[in-house]
C-alpha cells in the first residue's frame, strides 16, 4: 500500500525536474554579458573579502601551534616558526586537574545536546507537519507568532524567563538548558517551509485513503522526504546547545557545560595564552566540522526557507 507512495522520494522529484526542462531552456548557453575576465575579477574581490573574514580564525590557529617563546616575541609574528602540539597536550593536563572532573563537563554538554536536539526535532516536526499539511484552528496566527519570534533578542526576555524558571523550580536542573531549546522558533520555521514546498499534498492524501495513521504518515512518509530539513535542524540545535556557556539559570558547578569550563581556562589570560588558544581552537572546530560535513543538506533547506508576505 504505502510502498508505492514511498517511492516518490525527493531525489526522484528533483531528477524529474532536471530532465523535463521547459522548451525554452538553454542551460548550456552562456549569456552574452558573462565573461572570463569578469569571473576572475569577482574571484579576486571575494578572496580579498574572505581574507578579512578568516584572519582572526587563522590567528588563533597559529597561536595554538606556537611554543611559548614565540607567543611573546617582538615584533609579533603571525605564523609559527616551530609549530608544536604542546599547547594541546597542556590543555588536557589542565583539564585533568580541575575540581569538577572534566568528564562531567563533557557528559553535561553531550547529554544536553543529544536530548535537547532530539526532542526539538521531534516536537518541531510534529508541529510543522500540522502547520504545513493539516488544518487547525488559528493556525495562521500561531505561525505568524513564530515568525515574529525569530527576531526576538535573547536579552529582552531575560528577566521574565528567570522568573518563569524560578516558578517552575528549574533553576540548577538540566531542564533549564533543554526545555527552552525545544521551543526554538527557527526549527519550526525551517521545517514548515521545507514541508510546504517539497511534500506533495497528493502523497499524504493517498496515504490517508490507504488507512495510514497520522503518526505513521509523518514518520514513515514525510520525514524521509524532508531529511535535509531535519539534518539542518539537528545541526542548528546542536550548534546552539554546544555554544551554551554560562547559563544564568545554572549555578551548580557540576551542571555546567564543557564550553563554560573551556572559557574559564581561556579567561585566566596571559599565563595560559597558548593553552587558551588551543582551547579556542577546540571550541570553534566542532561546529565548523559539523557544518562542513552536512553543508549540502543545510543549503538545500535554506533554498526553501524564504518568507512569504
Amino acid at each position: 500500500m504505502s510502498e508505492n507512495v514511498k517511492k516518490v522520494s525527493l531525489a526522484d522529484k528533483i531528477k524529474f525536474h532536471k530532465e523535463n526542462k521547459g522548451p525554452g531552456h538553454l542551460s548550456t548557453m552562456r549569456l552574452r554579458n558573462r565573461t572570463t575576465s569578469g569571473y576572475i575579477t569577482t574571484l579576486i574581490v571575494l578572496l580579498l573579502f574572505s581574507i578579512v573574514m578568516v584572519i582572526p580564525m587563522l590567528y588563533i590557529l597559529c597561536n595554538s601551534l606556537k611554543p611559548l617563546n614565540e607567543l611573546w616575541i617582538f615584533p609579533p609574528r603571525f605564523f609559527p616558526h616551530n609549530p608544536t602540539f604542546k599547547n594541546f597536550r597542556d590543555l588536557f593536563e589542565v583539564m585533568n586537574t580541575s575540581t569538577v572532573p572534566f568528564s562531567r563537563y563533557i557528559f553535561n554538554t553531550a547529554f544536553i545536546s543529544i536530548v535537547g536536539t532530539g526532542a526539538h526535532v521531534i516536537a518541531a516536526s510534529l508541529c510543522a507537519y500540522v502547520f504545513a499539511r493539516r488544518r487547525m484552528w488559528c493556525k495562521e496566527g500561531l505561525f505568524k507568532t513564530v515568525q515574529t519570534a525569530l527576531m526576538f533578542v535573547g536579552g529582552v526576555t531575560g528577566i521574565p524567563s528567570f522568573i518563569i524558571m524560578v516558578g517552575l523550580g528549574w533553576i540548577d536542573t538540566y531542564y533549564a538548558y533543554i526545555i527552552p531549546a525545544i521551543g526554538a522558533p527557527l526549527g519550526l520555521y525551517l521545517m514548515k517551509q521545507f514541508m510546504e514546498q517539497l511534500v506533495p499534498v497528493s502523497v499524504i492524501e493517498a496515504a490517508r485513503i490507504d488507512g495510514c495513521g497520522e503518526f505513521k504518515i509523518l514518520f514513515r512518509i514525510v520525514m524521509p522526504m524532508v531529511k535535509s530539513a531535519w539534518v539542518t535542524l539537528i545541526i542548528f540545535s546542536f550548534q546552539g546547545l554546544w555554544g551554551a556557556g554560562g547559563s544564568s539559570f545554572i549555578y551548580d558547578e557540576s551542571l555546567k557545560t564543557f564550553n563554560y569550563a573551556i572559557q574559564q581556562i581561556i579567561s585566566v589570560g596571559i599565563v595560559r595564552a597558548g593553552i587558551g588558544a588551543a582551547a579556542q581552537v577546540l571550541l570553534m572546530m566542532v561546529p565548523i566540522i559539523v557544518f562542513l560535513i552536512s553543508q549540502s543538506n543545510v543549503m538545500e533547506t535554506m533554498a526553501t526557507s524564504g518568507m512569504k508576505e
Binding site: C127, V130, W137, T145, P160, S161, G183, P185, L188
Partner: peptide, 19 residues
C-alpha cells in the same frame, strides 16, 4: 492537530511569548 502540535507550541509560548 492541536494534540500533535501542542508539545512544541506549549514550550514555545512559555519561553518566547509569555516572557
Amino acid at each position: 492537530s492541536i494534540g500533535m502540535s501542542s508539545p512544541y507550541l506549549i514550550i514555545f509560548l512559555t519561553f518566547n511569548i509569555l516572557p
